[in-house]
Amino acid sequence: MSLMTSKTKWPEGLSDPSGRRQSKPRTEGRTMIIDKGIGVQAFEDMLETSGEYIDIIKFGFGTSPLYPLKVLRRKIELANRHGITVIPGGTLLEVAVRLDLIPGFFRQVLELGYSGIEVSDGTISISRTTRSDLIRDAKSLGLTVFTEYGKKLFGSRIDIGDFAETAEQDWACGADLVTVEARESGKGVGLFDEQGECRDGELSRILSAVPNLDRVVWEAPLKEQQVYLIRSLGPNVHLGNIPVQDVLTLETMRRGLRSDTFELQQVPCYDYMI
């Protein structure tokens, strides 16, 4: 018997053995990637290959003003066309706060077609009043707001009580998701120790203190961190700072299509003989 058909299609269960992944637009298991400056062709190739599995693209740090405008507009246009929320890095907004250039920042964000922003204070200190005002102002302009908690300085830890309070206030002001800082290295900041391993006790305390974990993004740039969080919090945990080349890899782990998370499969396993 020939196994060839006129319409080539993988058996339904093979695409998502976990049986849990949503199609876009997702409310669960969102993936935020960090683009540190790839070119338009590489960006387009990435979206063609794995755009279905990307929910948010962050143009990292303060890279946005350094692009040729034609290139930046094209990348933003491509992301929007794929139903992806695209934002400049939170560091750029911190620079705008420090230089008192907030109106110009928002004006350019809207003019370029960004669909959201990130409000953070990882490098400078921003008062609660200013943080709240930035969130509300962005929402009033029709932008999706992601906030970030934690400092970028190596060795910085999470103050659980402060994080819980900050997150609740951010959500009350209109933030969509609150991100736990880990930088692009994933080492020595926030949830992760100097070797990039998760501080189990810290995660447990956060789980007890913050009830709305479905509105928290965990920056986890390293594969072992992604595996740990998927195993601990499930395949629909929100993950951020994912390198552009790792989108498909992460999605296989979410679905139980890689040995690291094989146990996530929820379908019976049958012996099959041709």
Rank of each mutant, 00 (worst) to 15 (best):
D159V: 05
A164L: 10
I160M: 01
G161W: 02
G174V: 15
V189G: 01
G186R: 02
T179V: 15
E194Q: 10
R183L: 12
D159F: 07
E194A: 12
D162N: 04
Q195D: 09
A164D: 08
D176S: 15
E184T: 07
W171S: 13
V178S: 11
A172F: 08
V189R: 01
G190Y: 04
Q169F: 10
S204T: 12
I158Y: 00
S204W: 06
Q195H: 10
L203F: 08
R199N: 08
V189L: 07
E181C: 07
G201R: 02
F192K: 01
V178M: 12
D170Y: 04
D159W: 05
C173Q: 13
T179N: 13
G201S: 06
D200M: 05
Q169D: 14
E197Q: 04
C173P: 09
D200S: 10
G161R: 02
R157G: 00
D193P: 08
E165K: 10
W171C: 12
E168Q: 14
G188N: 09
D162G: 01
G186S: 05
D159L: 03
T179C: 15
E181M: 10
L203R: 03
E184S: 11
D193N: 15
E202K: 04
S185H: 02
E202T: 10
G201L: 02
E168S: 11
L177A: 08
D200P: 05
Q195R: 09
G196S: 08
A164I: 06
D200T: 12
E197P: 00
S185V: 06
A167K: 03
V180W: 00
V189Y: 02
D193A: 06
E181I: 09
A167T: 10
G196I: 03
D170S: 11
E165A: 14
G196M: 09
S185P: 03
D162Q: 09
C173I: 08
E202H: 04
L203G: 01
I160F: 01
G188M: 06
D162P: 02
C198R: 00
R199Y: 06
D176H: 15
T179F: 10
V180P: 01
Q195S: 11
L203D: 01
A175Q: 07
C173Y: 13
A182D: 05
L177R: 04
A182F: 12
L177W: 08
A175H: 05
V180T: 11
V180M: 14
L177P: 03
S185A: 12
G161Y: 04
D162T: 02
G186V: 08
A182G: 15
A182V: 06
V180E: 00
D193E: 13
R183N: 11
C198T: 03
E184L: 10
D193M: 11
G190M: 07
G161K: 04
E202V: 08
E202F: 04
G174S: 14
A167M: 13
F163Q: 01
S185T: 12
D176M: 13
V180I: 15
F192H: 00
C198I: 03
E194W: 09
D170I: 09
L203K: 02
A164S: 12
D162Y: 04
S185R: 03
D193V: 05
G161A: 05
C198A: 13
V178C: 13
